[in-house]
Design a protein around this nucleic acid. Sequence first.
DNA 1: ACAATGTCGACTGAATTAGTCGTGAATACC
DNA 2: GGTATTCACGACTAATTCAGTCGACATTGT
Lengths: 146, 146
Amino acid sequence: MLLSTKGDYGVRAMIDLAKHEGEGPVQRAEIAKRRQIPESYLDHLLAQLRRAGFVRSVRGPGGGHLLAKPAEEICLLHLLEALEGSLAPLQCLDNHEPGSEAICGQEWVWQEIYDDMRRKLAAVSLAALAEHEREHERTAVVNYSI
Amino acid sequence: MLLSTKGDYGVRAMIDLAKHEGEGPVQRAEIAKRRQIPESYLDHLLAQLRRAGFVRSVRGPGGGHLLAKPAEEICLLHLLEALEGSLAPLQCLDNHEPGSEAICGQEWVWQEIYDDMRRKLAAVSLAALAEHEREHERTAVVNYSI
DNA sequence: ACAATGTCGACTGAATTAGTCGTGAATACC
DNA sequence: GGTATTCACGACTAATTCAGTCGACATTGT
């Protein structure tokens, strides 16, 4: 598994914030409930996202969490790297020690896969993720209502 | 990290066997030394590869390990799946529980990446990996000898 | 018989994941 | 100023996996 629940949960939370962009702070409890994330764990993820500069938080009544920058300017690649660390599929593609590739023998296969992946993840913005979800909800409603 | 050292070591060992295809059994100690794998750990990996039908082993003096089928017929995808289990980058792409994708929100991005990856890994045979290494050694020697 | 080799299972230490909990800090509202 | 609400942060824990080590045993060539 390339991503742990950390990355999954973290992105879910960010999508939630993106969908409420411009509506003021969203509370942790709301996110946790809507996205099925243990609230006390979400706490840690939000802290991580805040430290990485993706989230701004407001304390006190009516407080909550907001995107620290527009959803268009946040891409999935940076988000996941903040949550998971490197997404390198293989050790020797991450720590570029000389010689580690020479003995690994499969790094030439993975390098291309890794590069493609990063390109694709960089091309997906948080705004696109939120929009995709809205689209999906709409068609789901249509399907059910027929 | 998508692959642990298990997958890395396992593939290294298989490349070693492929490079000695047709030369009789290769001993564990040799593989371990050449590929820089702890011998006692390699033991487990060979057992796993044997159970998966990729390796045949011979006991007694002069014994060792061989490919159970031609290197051309073994692809990197099947090898890695035997060693690592599913290569799915994300939980919801692995266990297809209905609804897990609905709430994940990023599975549509990963599905394409995952499919591409599997296609590429399926197209690389163990023979190609061994050949690539021979090629690389040859150019390395040329470079040094200039 | 004996030495070389693989087979197998028990055990271990470290790291990571996936949380829980409690205390404290900021702030809106009365 | 007091209180309720909400986030902030660190300590703690349980489960899992990884990465290995070790020892007893099985097989087989000489």
